[in-house]
């Protein structure tokens, strides 16, 4: 399945050209107002570029499937980190803060323990 696969030079040059074109596209998009979609488009283009680099320059397309699992693990842990951290930060205003938490005290927090 994964014996050495020599990718033709033409493919590399094609991928490189696509990467340069996508860089131009991401700059073009940044100067046009798509509202809140600007960031989504920017990250989307970056993901496509990263995928092209991984699949062809890093030969992932022709590699053993366990390497796909490894690459997927990296993405999964990134999503896990962001989701859990953001769900904390973004939900903080959802509930009222108990008054005692926000009142300044004479002693430093934790000093009484």
């Amino acid at each position: 399945m994964s014996e050495k696969h020599v990718i033709p030079v033409g493919t590399y040059v094609g991928i490189f050209t696509a990467l340069i074109a996508l860089t131009g596209l991401t700059v073009w998009v940044a100067f046009h107002d798509f509202g809140s979609m600007n960031t989504v488009i920017a990250v989307g283009i970056a993901c496509i570029k990263a995928l092209l680099v991984a699949l062809f320059f890093m030969h992932l397309k022709y590699s053993a499937r366990i390497l796909w699992l490894y690459a997927g693990t990296a993405i999964a842990f990134f999503i896990l980190l962001i989701t859990i951290t953001l769900s904390d930060y973004r939900s903080r205003e959802w509930f009222p803060t108990p008054k005692a938490w926000s009142q300044p005290t004479a002693t430093a927090p934790g000093a009484s323990h």
Binding site: T23, T26, V27, A30, F31, H32, D33, F34, N38, T39, A42, V43, I45, A46, K49, A50, V53, A54, F57
Partner: peptide, 17 residues
């Protein structure tokens, strides 16, 4: 290279429109 692919739009191209 992939790290930089993400850094360029996320640092240089924020709110340019």
């Amino acid at each position: 290279d992939i790290v930089w692919i993400f850094l360029f739009p996320l640092l240089y191209l924020v709110g340019r429109h």
